[in-house]
Every structure is written in structure tokens, then in C-alpha cells.
């Protein structure tokens, strides 16, 4: 497959679990600095697509190229190190560490066994932690055990942990699930801020929220792309209304 200018080029991607094709011949391209939202009914394969990109699930066919590097052959930590960050559906933070430690542990230095044993908290790390904490609105909670954060703040913290790694591609699975209206607005602002110098893929059900953030929307249905394009175009699409937006 030829090289492209896209940050992420997914081509003919297929994965089948015992004959059931969760993702079926999917082709999708993500531009630099683009914020793409994946929508679709439950079981459409949205989360599976993210799992395939970050290496959690191995594909049965097709290719995923990130900056023209094939990802399907790499292991999870190699994919992360090449610049792909992934946030899980339920907030995955280290509850027994403080907010500061959660961010510090995610700093992309000292990633080997011996590197981590000799890792020192330099001014650079300190600055990065404070910068990210300001971004995710958690500066005043830095010394608090992260288990005590509210649900929404935990979601932000996990996004912050990814930002510490300065990924070129950030993938967020339902980042506003369980958030209050105010928190949703703050998250939309946050996403609009952080996609300035990176590409972002978001899975989201809340159409109001999608409208606020999406540059382009991809609608998945039964592992295939049903429609793709700007929000207004997709919302007007008859097939989309029938299978997804209708109910």
C-alpha cells in the first residue's frame, strides 16, 4: 500500500471473532489536526476500531498506517511510543496515586525497567505536569489521591495522562459519559484546545456534544462505514436517520 499524507490511514481493516465480522473492510483516513468523531449504534464496532489501532485487538486483515508506519505488526507499547494515545471508556486512572503522580508516571521518559529505577523528577517533568494539570483544570487537586476526584475529573485526568505523552494521535472513547452539562461544555472546550497540534478520534453518542467538537463524523453500522463527512451532511443522510438517529 502506498504512502499518504494522512496521519492515520486505515485500509481494508477487518477483524472477525469466530466468523462474526466486528469490523468489515473498513477504510478511513484522518488528517493532521483533524478531530474526527465516530458514531453509531451499540455493537457497530466503534470501540473495536480503536482497539485495533492501539493494538489491543489484532486484526485479521487490512492495514493501519500511522505516519506511514504499519501498526498492525507492533506491540501495544511500541504503538504508544510511536505517538498514539488511547483513553478507555471507563476512566482508567491509578486511584491509589495522587493526581500529580498519575501525570508523572505517564511522562514518556524512564520507560524501561532500569530507566524507571534511575528516573529523576526534573524541572522539565515538573513544568510538564503543571502545564497539563492547568489544561485539564486539575491544578488545585495535584496533591490529592485521585480516587477522591469526581467522575468527570477522573475522565479529564486520564486525558491529561495521555497529553503528558504528547501523542500525535489521541483516541478518546466516550470522554463525556457520566458528566454534568457544565462538565460537558468544559470538556468540549478542552478537546477544541488540545486538537490544535494533533489529530483526535472521539467516540461519542451525545449528538449535541458531537456538534460542538466534530470536524468530520464517521457513522459506523455493523462494522462498516455508513456515512462520512461534516455533521450537517451526515445528519441529513437518510440511511443514518434510519439506523441511528431515528431512534
Amino acid at each position: 500500500m502506498s504512502n499518504t499524507d494522512f496521519v492515520l490511514a486505515v485500509e481494508d481493516l477487518t477483524v472477525s471473532f469466530d466468523g462474526f465480522k466486528a469490523v468489515d473492510n473498513l477504510t478511513m483516513y484522518i488528517d493532521k489536526n483533524e478531530l474526527r468523531v465516530l458514531v453509531g449504534p451499540n455493537g457497530a464496532g466503534k470501540t473495536t476500531v480503536l482497539d485495533l489501532i492501539c493494538g489491543k485487538t489484532k486484526s485479521t486483515g487490512g492495514s493501519i498506517k500511522f505516519n506511514n508506519t504499519e501498526l498492525t505488526k507492533l506491540s501495544e507499547h511500541e504503538i504508544v511510543r510511536s505517538g498514539v494515545g488511547r483513553k478507555f471508556q471507563n476512566p482508567s486512572i491509578y486511584e491509589n496515586l495522587t493526581v500529580y503522580q498519575n501525570l508523572e508516571v505517564s511522562y514518556p521518559k524512564g520507560r524501561g525497567v532500569f530507566g524507571s529505577l534511575t528516573f529523576k523528577r526534573t524541572q522539565e517533568v515538573e513544568d510538564q505536569v503543571r502545564r497539563v494539570a492547568a489544561d485539564i483544570m486539575l491544578t488545585e487537586f495535584l496533591d490529592m489521591e485521585s480516587a477522591l476526584l469526581s467522575h468527570g475529573q477522573k475522565q479529564w485526568l486520564e486525558i491529561g495522562m495521555l497529553l503528558m505523552q504528547e501523542p500525535e494521535l489521541l483516541m478518546l472513547d466516550e470522554p463525556v459519559a457520566g458528566m454534568s452539562a457544565k462538565e460537558r461544555d468544559q470538556t468540549a472546550d478542552l478537546l477544541n484546545r488540545i486538537c490544535q497540534n494533533r489529530s483526535v478520534i472521539v467516540i461519542e453518542h451525545d449528538m449535541e456534544f458531537v456538534k460542538k467538537i466534530a470536524h468530520k463524523v464517521t457513522v459506523l453500522h455493523q462494522g462498516k462505514i455508513l456515512a462520512e463527512g461534516p455533521m450537517e451532511k451526515v445528519q441529513a443522510d437518510e440511511k443514518v436517520i434510519e439506523v441511528y438517529l431515528g431512534h
Binding site: 504508544v80 482508567s92 491509578y94 505517564s106 520507560r111 495522562m161 505523552q165
Partner: peptide, 15 residues
Amino acid sequence: LAMRDKEERVRFSGY
């Protein structure tokens, strides 16, 4: 400690 709590998160943080 992080691994004991959320192993996947550590793995997908590049470790």
C-alpha cells in the same frame, strides 16, 4: 502500584 491498579492503562502508556 499503577500496574496493580490498572495494568492496561500502564501498557497503553507505553510500558
